[in-house]
């Protein structure tokens, strides 16, 4: 089965390592992404989770949604704890305290814990070359504390700390390109994924976990609460983000770029933005500015793929 690319949903493993009964909002894209990411990881894994939505929804005492070993850490040291576990396992196996076996170490964090607070720990762990997989679930703001802006919030989005009004258009800086920062560390595997493309996501997580050395997977997780859209549109919005070129799906294997979904013609960004309340206030010329930026970034990415 592992030799073939499977695109049949009902053949995907039925085992849920992320148990139902978690407290995610209705239609949560992040819960969907975590559930899908846990499928290819299997049972021989230790998951390290930063503070954030995933931790809040999955581990409210006395319940836990995890059916695999799991540890909660703070915002700033997710990658440090993951690298410590990896080194600890390595030395315990070397000394013969535990049997030689393959245990994957996976760090999961939100966009705030990755691109703002935990960036130095992540950068250090990638530089030291620990054998771990880091998954960033990017919902483009600090959602669990009530939609505060992060450096991953896109230009023009209205959040509670970058509110739109007469004076401001909302967030005035561009989204930090975190996969590019990870790729700049020259690590073996960097990828972007989206739960709207579930097989692509599961392939990338499996590939990242199998890669010796650090791997980084950036997953866009649409958030109905923070992006202000109807909960049934979660999967459609993820797909629109890819089809408009706002969030292109690509992977970087040992410095070689590969675009997983290339479209001959991108959809206009308004298709993606008009469904979301956080972009409702934007005027025509701001949307044009965003469109030009998206076109330019996409052309840059296409250049790298060649």
């Amino acid at each position: 089965m592992e030799k073939y690319a499977v695109f049949v949903p009902k053949l995907v493993t039925k085992r849920e390592n992320f148990a139902p009964g978690h407290r995610a909002c209705i239609g949560c894209g992040e819960a969907l992404a975590v559930r899908l990411a846990c499928k290819p990881l299997g049972q021989r894994v230790i998951i390290v989770t930063a503070t954030g939505c995933i931790e809040i929804i999955s581990s409210q005492l006395p319940y836990t949604s995890w059916r695999v070993p799991w540890i909660h850490t703070l915002f700033e040291n997710t990658a440090a704890v993951a690298s410590g576990i990896e080194s600890g396992l390595k030395i315990l196996m070397k000394k013969g305290r535990i049997a030689q076996q393959e245990i994957k170490v996976v760090a999961m964090a939100g966009d705030g814990a990755t691109s703002d607070i935990g960036l130095q720990a992540l950068s250090g762990a990638m530089e030291r070359g620990h054998d771990f997989l880091y998954i960033c679930f990017d919902n483009e703001a600090y959602m669990n504390t009530g939609v505060q802006r992060s450096s991953a919030t896109p230009f023009g989005a209205s959040t509670t700390t970058s509110p739109a009004g007469r004076v401001s258009i909302g967030q005035v800086t561009w989204k930090k390109d975190m996969p590019a920062i990870a790729a700049a560390h020259d690590i073996p595997y960097v990828a972007t994924a989206c739960p709207s493309y579930p097989f692509d996501l599961m392939d990338k997580v499996a590939k990242g976990a199998a890669t010796p050395g650090p791997a980084y997977v950036h997953i866009l997780s649409p958030c109905p609460t923070g992006w202000r859209f109807a909960p049934d549109l979660t999967v459609r919005l993820g797909r629109l983000a890819v089809e408009t070129g706002i969030f292109p799906l690509y992977e970087v294997e040992n410095g070689t770029y590969r675009l997983n979904f290339d479209f001959p013609k991108l959809r206009p960004v308004t298709d993606y933005m008009k469904l979301q309340g956080r972009f409702r206030h934007l005027s025509e010329d701001v949307i044009n500015k965003i469109q030009q930026r998206v076109n330019r970034e996409y052309a840059k990415l296409r250049e790298k793929v060649k």
Partner: peptide, 24 residues
């Protein structure tokens, strides 16, 4: 049916995936 008496010392959760007892 849970009360505070059912909590383990040190707030340890002993059963993996027991959130499936929680009705959403």
């Amino acid at each position: 049916m849970l009360t505070w008496r059912d909590l383990e010392i040190g707030s340890i959760v002993v059963e993996p995936g027991n959130a499936s007892q929680y009705q959403t």
